[in-house]
Structure formats: C-alpha cells, structure tokens
C-alpha cells in the first residue's frame, strides 16, 4: 500500500519515465536492436544511391534537398528497387487501403524493409519480456534484460502475434470493409464536410480499437510478469481484467507517451538538423544527432511500458530470491545485515 502515490495516468507515466532514465540500458538495447535491423539496409541503400547519384550532376543539388523529378524518375526507371513500397506506406488510410495482395508488388529494398518490419515485431516481443522483467527488479542489468527476454519469449511472442492478428482484423473490418460498405453512400451525402466527418470518425474509431488492442496486450504482458504466483491461464485473464478495470488510466498513459513522442518530433522538425546539408551539419554530426533522437524515442518507449506497469501493479514480484519480498515471503528473504535500517515501506515498489 502506498497511499501517498498518485495513481493518475500522468503520474504513472512520469514514474515510468523516471524508471526508464534510471535503467537507460533498456532504451540502449531497444535502440541497438533497431539500429542493427536498420543497418541491414545500409549497404543496399548506400550502394544504390552512390551508383545513381555520385557521377550525376544532380547530386550537388540534392545534398540538402530531395528532387521530386529525380525521385519520380527513379520509381519509374527502377521498379526493381522499391516496388510499390511508397504506395503501401501512403496508401494505408486511403479508401482502398492496403490489402495483403499488394505485398506481391514489393521489390528489392522495399521488400527487405517490410521483412525487417516483421523481424522487428518478433524481436520486440523478446525486448518486451526483457523490459517488463527488468523493470521489476531493483538491481537489473543488461544481463537481466537478456535473461528475462529469453525467459518470456514464447509467451510474449504469442501475445504479440495475437495482438498483430487482432490489429489486422481491426484494420480490415473497421477500416477496409466499412469503407467499402460506405463508399457509395458517402458519395450521396449532402456535403463533403459530412463525408470528411465520417472519415475522421472512422480514423478515430480505428485508432481507438488499435489502442485498445495494444493496451490489452501490454496489460497482459505486465500482469504476466507481475503475477508469477498465478497459473498461466489465470495470469492471462488477470491481464485482460487489469486492462478492463483501469481503461482510462491506461489510455492516459498511452496518450501521454504519444504526446511526448510527438513533441520530440516537433522539436526535430523545428530544429531541422538535416536541413541545409553542408551548411548546418556535416555528415557525422548529422548521423549522431539522428541516433540521439532515436535513443530518446526509445527512452520514452521504455517509459511508457514502465508507466503501464506502474498503472497496473505496484508490488514487485515475489519470485526473485534476491528481492526484498513482501512480508508473506519473509522466510525465504536473505537475512538483512544488522546495521541496515529497516525498510520504510517494505511492500513498496522499486
């Protein structure tokens, strides 16, 4: 029990951020995983770009700025490079949306990017096991992260795949199918404003459903780690019950994280370190700035998961032999040195 602590969403997210900052190696590992995945593309992208640009007179024009004509010509003359990857990214929220049949249009770097995305989702299941596990330990380390990640991996991968399937179903039924069903009726509406309002409502509904899926999945993960005392099936349902019991607080944590990340993007766009090419930042400082940005994003991300954990549970799990366990587990706790002051709040969280 900790009556002094606020359980509001912002407070949970704030404590999560603090936990993330106190264990920066979690964000480091997330950043590393993504950097390693993305670096698979460095060679193909770099080789193609150097091949296309280095001896082209348009290269000097394009140091800082893209060239619409160059890009459109590239897509036309080198369909093998990306395939329909740009269309997939921009087509997600069009009325037609993106269906699995469009994946056959992927080529080269575009196909590799999508495969890396799938790999990233799988690896993220591992990372989440590591994050939730390590967050509950007062003295975690990168080793804890790895061990916890491996330990939770089968269950967490199942949660991730289930969430992914649910999200795809939601995209299909909340976006694509309603879009198709409404298509003709939309054209018969009195004004475009009405049509826009309906589209906006559909976007919001989709965002809401996807958020709910994510929050349920994250809740299941958090409880899965927090309640090893329960059998797996009970843990799973306790996770869902946890999400259903505190929907507003969980949405609040998610919203806080999104707003923080968007603020980060806004700062990036205003500060604009990649503009001006030569003028503002040389290549190496540019790369460093970019990586600092991605690391900050990872910090916030870990903060979000810690915030979710905070919002759902507050006692550390009793499973670790070396953790000061709740009083019920007193017999297996290591004997405290004589001179150690008594814990003020033995049941309290990290």
């Amino acid at each position: 029990m900790s009556p002094v602590r606020s359980s509001g969403a912002l407070a949970c997210f704030g404590r999560g951020l603090r936990a993330s900052l106190s264990k920066p190696y979690l964000a480091v590992s997330l950043w590393l995983i993504q950097l390693l995945l993305a670096s698979v593309l460095i060679l193909p992208v770099s080789n193609s770009l150097h091949d296309l640009l280095d001896d082209s007179p348009s290269a000097s024009r394009m140091v800082a700025n893209p060239d619409l004509g160059w890009w459109e010509t590239l897509l036309r003359t080198h369909p093998d490079l990306l395939g329909n990857f740009p269309d997939l990214l921009t087509g997600l929220l069009t009325p037609e949306g993106v269906t699995s049949s469009k994946l056959s249009g992927l080529r080269g770097i575009g196909a590799a990017a999508v495969s890396l995305g799938l790999l990233a989702i799988v690896l993220h299941a591992f990372a989440l096991g590591g994050i939730f596990g390590t967050l509950r330990e007062p003295h975690g380390s990168l080793v804890t992260f790895g061990r916890e990640g491996m330990r939770r991996f089968p269950a967490f991968l199942a949660f991730t795949l289930a969430a992914l399937a649910a999200a795809l179903l939601a995209y299909r039924w909340v976006w694509l199918e309603t879009g198709l069903a409404l298509n003709e009726r939309m054209r018969e509406l009195q004004s475009e404003r009405q049509a826009l309002a309906i589209t906006l409502a559909r976007v919001l509904l989709l965002a809401f459903v996807l958020s709910a899926i994510k929050l349920v999945a994250d809740s299941v993960r958090a409880i899965w780690v927090a309640r090893p005392d329960l059998p797996p099936v009970s843990r799973f349902f306790a996770g869902i019950a946890g999400a259903l019991a505190r929907p507003v607080r969980l949405f609040g944590v998610l919203l806080s994280a999104i707003v923080t990340i968007l603020t980060l993007y806004a700062i990036w766009i205003v500060a604009d370190p990649s503009a001006g090419g030569e003028a503002r930042f040389a290549l190496v400082p540019l790369i460093l700035t970019q990586q600092v940005f991605v690391f900050l994003r990872s910090l916030i991300k870990v903060g979000y998961y810690a915030g979710i954990s905070e919002a759902l549970t507050r006692t550390p799990s009793p499973e670790y032999s070396y953790v000061a366990a709740p009083s019920s587990a007193a017999p297996v706790a290591p004997p405290a040195p004589d001179d150690e002051p008594p814990l003020e709040n033995p049941a309290g969280a990290v």
Partner: peptide, 12 residues
Amino acid sequence: RAASRWTARSVF
C-alpha cells in the same frame, strides 16, 4: 555527398 546523406536519412 548526396548519396551519403540520403543513406543516413534512409537508415534514420
């Protein structure tokens, strides 16, 4: 220069 920068941007 352009290719290096756009590689960095692509990875980012």
